[in-house]
Design a protein around this nucleic acid. Structure first.
Length: 191
DNA sequence: GTTGAGCGTT
């Protein structure tokens, strides 16, 4: 059997990368984020209306547009809003803003709620590495049985990754999980 | 071998 590919670029004008689809014709979100860390979906330009169209995402799988399929056209990554401000970031020079960044840019441990019982620390790390360098990943377990308690903690090297992760929900091993700043760190993080 | 809101033995 032959694997089908579709062309994906980070944005218009960028070099596309060919990504393999699954047997059912869908593209796994994990395949997408492996090449484009933090990407949360796909869009493409409708040749008729010139407008951008979103690609359907369901259960971690991106579905080809019903009318045209993946075809040979180029699809573009969609990022959670924070990420889309490349130009803004170059404009900051005020000391006030810099000062504020210093206090906000510190990474904290993040709690991951709702993990499947089967998810291991290895799985957790692999999932979140698509967002950036992971310094720590742990799954809380029963010390005697080793059974997962269904939640864990992660820590990123960069605050940018942390913000992207906090901005969306996460499909991990088939379950939607929430990432939050843990209560024990909330006071510290909000100062 | 089960469960599904929550808050981390070191």
């Amino acid at each position: 059997m032959s694997v089908e590919y579709l062309q994906v670029a980070e944005d218009e004008g960028e070099e596309p990368i060919e990504l393999p689809t699954e047997d059912d014709g869908t593209l796994l979100l994990s395949t997408l984020s492996a090449q484009f860390p933090g990407s949360s979906g796909l869009k493409y330009r409708n040749p008729e209306t010139k407008a951008m169209r979103g690609v359907r995402l369901s259960e971690g799988r991106l579905h080809p547009p019903p009318e045209i399929g993946w075809g040979s056209q180029i699809f573009y990554c969609v990022f959670p809003k924070e990420n889309k401000r490349k130009s803004d970031d170059n404009l900051e020079n005020s000391t006030a803003k810099t000062k504020r960044m210093e206090t906000k840019l510190r990474c904290t441990d993040l709690i991951v709620l709702g993990l499947p019982w089967k998810t291991t620390e290895q799985n957790l790390r692999e999932y979140f590495e698509t967002f950036g360098e992971v310094l720590m990943a742990q799954v809380k377990k029963d010390p005697k049985t080793g059974q997962s308690k269904g939640f864990g903690f992660i820590r990123f090297a960069s605050y940018e990754s942390q913000m992207r992760v906090l901005a969306q929900r996460h499909m991990i091993d088939g379950r939607w999980c929430d990432v939050k700043v843990p209560n024990s760190k909330v006071l510290m993080a909000r100062i």
